[in-house]
Simulated assay, not measured.
Amino acid sequence: MVIETGLQRLEGGPLQVSVRTDLHGCKGRMLDWWFKFFETTQHIKWWHPVDHVEHRGWDEHWKRGENYYGASIHAVESLAEIPPVAAKLKFHDPVEVYGEAALKDAFGAGAVSAIIAARIGFGDNVKMDVNKDPITGQMLHVARDTSWGCVLRSRFVLGLEPGAEHVPEKVGLALMQHCYTEFTFLSRMLASLYYGERANGEEVPMPW
């Protein structure tokens, strides 16, 4: 992940969007838990009070508090100044991306504390493959814990469909702003929500 925050046009035309967000007071395990928790429009409005419009539901593979791998979500959201549009995301086990051995080493060394991987598509008629994965885009969020919280590095690749027109850079810039803003908002309340829900059975660390 060479570029921390910015755009890069990849060979063949896809647009890569890179975003770094510092999540103060949050750890990677909290971020992973969040994807097993949120399930309503109110929840996603906590995440981004302006851009997130509607949560249209998870499919049957999502299990609250247990699993989001293999699950798909439908929602409606704006991307900064770009008006609301439907979105579909299908989440994958990071093992499919990095392999079991590499993941074990990265987590064991503390280089990584959470990975959220998905295929993504925007619009009312998202093109999908035989596995119901959107074919137009990819998303990756990689967290690393620090003494003050965690660093989140996000990567999106848009315009992957063969023969597709190039995704305009203004869309990439809007997605960059959206991503940074939503995770900044999330960082302001995630730790309290995590401990309030007694997530993972953890004791609440009292500030006094």
Rank of each mutant, 00 (worst) to 15 (best):
I116L: 11
A191S: 15
M176T: 00
W208P: 07
A164W: 04
L175Q: 03
T184Q: 11
A199Q: 06
H24Y: 12
A101L: 10
P205F: 15
L23E: 02
M30G: 05
F122A: 04
G149M: 06
S187R: 05
L15P: 00
G163Q: 01
W208F: 12
F35N: 04
G28N: 02
E60M: 05
I116P: 04
V167P: 03
D22F: 13
W58R: 09
R20L: 13
P49S: 12
A174Q: 11
W208M: 03
A101K: 15
N200I: 07
K88C: 07
G108K: 11
E39H: 15
D129Q: 14
S113M: 02
D22E: 14
P83Q: 13
A86R: 09
K63T: 13
R153P: 01
G57C: 10
L15I: 00
F122Y: 14
Y98V: 01
H74G: 00
R20I: 10
A114K: 02
R153I: 09
A71D: 01
F185Q: 14
F107C: 12
T41P: 08
W208T: 07
G99L: 13
V142C: 10
S18M: 10
D124C: 04
R29D: 04
L7M: 06
L31V: 15
D51I: 04
R29Q: 09
G65A: 05
F35I: 07
H61S: 09
F185W: 15
D51N: 11
R155L: 10
G172P: 10
T40N: 02
A174S: 13
I44V: 14
E203Y: 08
S18C: 14
L160S: 10
A117Y: 15
A174L: 12
E96K: 15
A80N: 10
F91C: 01
N125C: 00
Y68T: 05
K90T: 00
G121Q: 02
S187T: 02
H52K: 01
G163F: 09
I115E: 07
V2R: 03
G196Y: 09
H24G: 01
R144C: 06
T146F: 14
D51L: 06
K27S: 04
K127P: 09
F156N: 11
H178E: 06
T136V: 02
M128N: 09
F122E: 04
P134I: 09
S18E: 01
E60W: 04
M139D: 05
W47F: 14
P14K: 02
H55Q: 00
F37V: 03
G12T: 03
P205A: 14
G196T: 00
H24W: 07
D145Y: 13
E100M: 06
P168L: 12
E81S: 11
K104P: 00
S187G: 08
K132D: 03
I115Y: 08
T136R: 08
H48W: 00
A101S: 12
D145H: 13
R153Y: 11
V50S: 09
T181H: 08
E161L: 13
D32W: 11
A106E: 13
V151K: 13
W148T: 15
F122G: 06
W47P: 06
A86S: 10
A111L: 14
